[in-house]
Amino acid sequence: MFASLSDFARRDPLGFIGLMLVTMILFAGLFGNWLAPYAPSKIDVPSRLLAPSWEHLMGTDKLGRDVFSRILAGSALALQIGVVTVGLSVVIGTVLGLIAGYGPRWLDSILLLIFDTTYSFPTVILGLALVTLFGPSTTTLMGLVMLFLIPAYARLVRSSTLAAKGADYVLALRSMGASSGRILGIHILPNVIGPVIIVACMDVPAIIALEAGLTYLGLGVPPPAPSWGRILEEGTGSIREAPWIVVAGGLPIILATLGFTFLGESLRDRLDPKRKGRA
């Protein structure tokens, strides 16, 4: 572990950059509505399509809305979709993975088949089908994301549970008559949760990008919510007159991805003993 922040920055610059970016995004998500210089949905037609200036840091869009304020407001939405759904998926996926890994063989085979099939399915296309069915909404989107993530986490937990099942300490616990629930919850869980947390951290930006992508297609979060995907979609419409809108709309997605990826890799190098000393 690192003694101080500056020490951290020197020894693991990429991890440090990741931490800074993630902190920045969390900050924007939590306090964005206070920091925003304008109301994100306030229409001001006379000042439409203004280029970036001190008054409007990222310019204004076709309806005269301040792009910077909309980006800040969008970060709350992105975090809600990214962090909340990934968190819920970790919980459900872990439980299913423990059951598959520790339970009887036939149950394992069935769960594994379901995990593999759903995991490798074309997500956006499945999303399109689901959205056609239920109509675009934040709930549909979160459900879709979980459908995609749960099997991935369950698979990961399953394989480490399988390994732990045969370990000496588990055999000892069983011979002492510990219940399956106790073995799984108190003894196996802490041993298998680490890798899932790391993968989940790296999945957050993928989900943020997926939300933006589906919203871009008009199938994600319905208007007027200021999603980053919607800013991009509206910006593409005025890409000739106001290129700053798409530039501003894409940046937070790239920064979020870089941040969570660098942080996730740094965590992995720190927590995974097998990778210690390797670049």
């Binding site: 930006p205 990008a209 933006a212 992508g213 871009y216 991009l232 910006g235 593409t236 890409i239 798409v246 530039v247 894409g250 997605i253 790239i254 991805t257 870089l258 990826t261």
Partner: peptide, 12 residues
Amino acid sequence: AISIPPFVLAIY
């Protein structure tokens, strides 16, 4: 390169 979502890259 991995961090730039393809559709954002496409728009850029």
